[in-house]
Design a protein around this nucleic acid. Structure first.
Lengths: 234, 234
DNA sequence: CTGCTTTGGTGTAAAAAAAACAATAAGCTT
DNA sequence: AAGCTTATTGTTTTTTTTACACCAAAGCAG
């Protein structure tokens, strides 16, 4: 094999860290590998990139094949390219994370034979390949990004309460061991002062306590503010 | 050609955005392409990744071949993988940026035939491939990172004045058209309050005005503070 | 229907951080 | 010695962040 040929004995893949939020913890959707290498281990959903496929498109495809969802929030994080990261050959992978509303996910569509399951991010065990490292990178990027742009709402249903929103931020931002929480009054003051939440004049139903008001994220307002030089910060 | 084979008719490269600072503007080191495609155009230095080479190692190698420098600040930004980004085939590239002290760079070592030249980042013209997009991404990451970690010092000589440091921050952070500058007193107050600058008790020599005091970045102090939970922010 | 339990909702004061702002100092040049 | 250029230094005002506690509204148990 010539040296030039050997440059092409390699492949690239994408791996997708799919985040969800169940009201309590931040979750990540993992699949259990059905074949070697790492058979039986939990892993990030991913696939080789087709020859005529953009990286972003490949990541969207992986997401859609697993969840049936399209048009969700998806962002590249970085490439992982250690020589020995894949036992069967040289495979560079590009990591993405996506944010979905966990209720939109209907368990295990036929297209994927592997069993997929939500795992609490703080409790995923030992994953296949370098997927623990990839997950860690994606989490770090999510933590940074969720404070600088209003992407947290991608994880919530269209109508939500301020308490749900706060729990979402806490599940992402508060280190597992820390027992500190975000101050309720300060959080509400800050988030409402952005004027990005639309009060729906509705309340929760069927809860065994005072029902909370429901809000909606006002995307149009956000686009408009952005155009005026606004920058989200929470 | 089987479908499996076609997955391997592809290659990966690294491209390196090498930043420097000359006391006035933020600069980027570009090479003029000597061969097709884009012959004669300015481009980011880069190369295919060797089969047994980690991505990071490839980026270090590109940097060293061009500048002779090792052990400088280097950071991956992201992968660029549009199908048509390379006219000769499917090449995914991983972008890095590095920060070097411009005075350490001795022009065009023999190893690189191409002519290399520093360009003011705000005045690079139309680059080869998708290199304008890559440069833009790296700049964005540099702008974010330079405020969160003390990497600016990588661009300065070991001894520097506070005015030089301020000009560095301005060259990176102030948008080209904006005429606002950073407030001198506030900048000095803030940077000195970190206690990361060591006053060398020396002053500039041979300047036709009041000489400024020289400082050194105290890396040990920084490591120590980091261990205590400190986080840089300017 | 009464009271208990649970979570929702609200304002103010103190502290800290950021922003605005101008006069004197020190070296060199002429 | 006067003039030019850049260096150095503090205070006040404004804004942002933090800390903190009580009443409200619903379902539930008795």
């Amino acid at each position: 094999m010539s040296e030039v040929e050997s440059f092409f004995k390699s492949a690239f893949s994408v791996d997708n860290v799919i985040f969800g939020f169940d009201g309590g913890d931040l979750k990540v959707l993992l699949i259990q590998r059905g074949a070697a290498p790492y058979k039986g281990k939990w892993a990030l959903p991913g696939d080789l990139v087709y020859p005529n496929e953009d990286l972003d498109t490949a990541a969207e495809r992986v997401l859609e094949q697993l969840t049936g969802l399209r048009g969700v929030y998806l962002e590249q994080v970085k490439a992982f390219g250690a020589v020995d990261r894949h036992p069967l050959g040289r495979v560079i992978t590009v990591a993405y994370f996506s944010l979905i509303k966990i209720s939109d996910y209907t368990v295990t569509p036929a297209s994927f034979a592997q069993s997929a399951k939500w795992h609490t991010v703080t409790k995923v065990g030992d994953l296949a390949f370098d997927h623990n490292e990839i997950l860690e990178s994606c989490l770090k990027k999510l933590r940074r990004k969720v404070r600088m742009t209003p992407i947290g709402f991608e994880l919530l249903p269209p109508k939500f309460t301020l308490t749900e929103l706060q729990q979402l931020y806490e599940s992402i931002l508060i280190p597992p061991k820390s027992k500190k929480r975000i101050d309720k009054r300060n959080f509400r003051k800050k988030i409402l002062s952005t004027n990005l939440l639309h009060d729906l004049n509705e309340v929760q139903e069927g809860v065994a306590h005072r029902p909370a008001k429901l809000y909606r994220f006002d995307r149009n307002k956000y686009e408009q503010l952005i155009a005026e030089g606004y920058s989200f910060d929470i």
